[in-house]
């Protein structure tokens, strides 16, 4: 794996493929752990709250101002996920990364963009419509897929960042900007897995999960996360994600 970083123009697809292929069972399990499911639960809960109360009131209940709506909602959902992880004693490294994914998923949903571009401008009403439609149109499984893609983005950034530093200044990554570009490209490639994830069968579970106590909710959502992560890792290992 590490020799790729030393070669000129390392391929992000190949870097991701080799990392995915090298992950052991314990790491697979960690990536699907309770905190990762709890983070999905926070997103599901947020969608239900917006459908029920509207976005402005949901933000108000979170103690947040209405603007910029996308940022505030993403902040509130991340904060809620953090609260649930602390309450249920689910701290883990992959939970730390999933918390980041809650925020970026919410931004992406609010802006209808993979990367969250335009997140400071999108109006509250537009954000509300987008989150409401996830429930009314039966699209929660697509949200779960998007979340999985963002979680893989954060996880593979983590894997790359652990090792890449030693190679900065060498032929493959002469500067820190090269290292940043490689990390971004690997992350983007992994994030794109979301488009191919088949999670439709979980729509009923996702639609009802908000009714459960958070302590039970993560157990119901864990199969969704496990399926998404395993499908995503398979794609990445096969080099077909993006």
């Amino acid at each position: 794996m590490r020799e790729l970083y030393a070669q000129p123009n390392p391929s992000p697809v190949e870097v991701a493929r080799r990392i995915a292929g090298a992950l052991d069972a314990q790491t697979h399990a960690g990536m699907q752990g309770p905190a990762v499911a709890t983070c999905l639960g926070a997103l599901v809960e947020g969608c239900a709250a917006i459908e029920r109360d509207g976005l402005e009131r949901t933000l108000q209940q979170m103690g947040l101002p209405p603007e910029p709506a996308a940022v505030q909602l993403a902040a509130g959902l991340r904060d809620r996920a953090e609260e649930l992880i602390a309450q249920t004693g689910q701290a883990s490294r992959f939970g730390d990364l999933a918390l980041e994914a809650v925020g970026t998923t919410a931004l992406a949903l609010a802006t209808l963009s993979d990367s969250g571009a335009g997140l400071l401008e999108v109006p509250l009403a537009a954000v509300e419509v987008r989150f409401r439609s996830l429930r009314t149109e039966g699209e929660l499984h697509r949200m779960a897929a998007l979340y999985t893609g963002h979680d893989l983005d954060r996880a593979f950034r983590y894997f790359v960042a652990r090792d890449v530093g030693d190679f900065v200044g060498g032929e493959g990554l002469p500067t820190v900007s090269d290292a940043n570009r490689l990390e971004d490209a690997v992350a983007a490639h992994c994030r794109q897995t979301w488009r191919r994830l088949a999670l439709g069968e979980y729509e009923p579970i996702l639609a009802e999960a908000h009714l459960l106590d958070p302590g039970e909710r993560f157990e119901v959502l864990q199969p969704v996360v496990a399926s998404g992560i395993e499908q995503g890792l398979e794609q990445i290992a096969a080099g077909v994600a993006g």
Partner: peptide, 30 residues
């Protein structure tokens, strides 16, 4: 390396990119 990578990112990114790429900023907003 991490200090320089981080600084370089901040210098190169727009405000929106910075928030999207460093979502820990959201915890500050909350």
């Amino acid at each position: 390396v991490d200090l320089l990578r981080h600084a370089r990112r901040i210098a190169e990114q727009s405000d929106a990119e910075l928030v999207a790429e460093q979502p820990a900023i959201l915890a500050l907003s909350a």
